[in-house]
Amino acid sequence: MSALATTSRRVARRRRKAPPAHVRHGRHARRWQFALLILMVPFFAAPFYVMITAAFKTPAHADVLTMWQLPHPLSFDGIREAWSKLSPNFVNSVIMVVPATVISSLIGSFNGYLLSKFTFRLSNLMFTLMLVGMFIPYQSILIPMVKFLQFVGLYGTIPGLILVHVVYGIPITTLIFRNYYVSIPRALVEAASIDGAGIVRTYRSVILPVSIPGFVVAGIFQFTNIWNDFLFGLVVIPNPTIQPVTAALNNLSGTQTVNWNVVMAGALIAALPTGLAYLGLGRFFVQGLTSGSVK
């Protein structure tokens, strides 16, 4: 974490010092571009306006008919009820999502390194076969998955859920890292190998240090996906007390009656960790590759 933070500051400093050359030119074009961005704001902000205002309304007022009105009377019942129902499951999500994200990103990084730097016979086939995993329909593999987890004794446990998220995350993280490592010259890897370093040591000493941006991209992708999943959470863990927070979020809306103020409040609360992750890591997510790429 601290390594990330230092890099962030370094990147920030570099940015402030030298704005891109094209920015220095064309003041006129820049105005147009800024105007275009401003035009996009309503499209992106309108749904947030609706969600946030609805979260502070009374149940009857949090309705499509009054969606544009400001909350009047202001009601905190939705926030309160959503929080009381979501908070017991927050911790479960955190202890599930952090290891799942880290492990799947690490594996994806190592695989991406192997696949981009060592093209061996069958390497493309193996990669292709793994990529199919991205597209498998989850609904129809749930039962064999439960049976497998029972067989290895992980059914009903958070480690079991972590395993599922890690395995189904491997294809995407591998893809992200494989395409990311393409920008790292193969010569660098080979120089290390001439020095006598093995595959694993080369990964540790040459590849891993320049991978932080890749980890941020893959990590945020995985974090968001795993945090927002509730199907696997429900199926792998039948016990409601250790289910992830999204299972509780899903249950905020009833089968017959739905109070939208509670649902909107819950959705906002459940999105907080992911949103904060973006804000905290957004800089890396977006500018990562320059700081890490090898020139």
């Binding site: 439960v146 059914y155 009903g156 199926v235």
Partner: peptide, 15 residues
């Protein structure tokens, strides 16, 4: 339907 989906996997797994 969500409940039935989860229940189906549990019946399938014998839980």
């Amino acid at each position: 339907t969500n409940a039935k989906q989860v229940l189906a996997t549990r019946l399938g797994g014998g839980d």
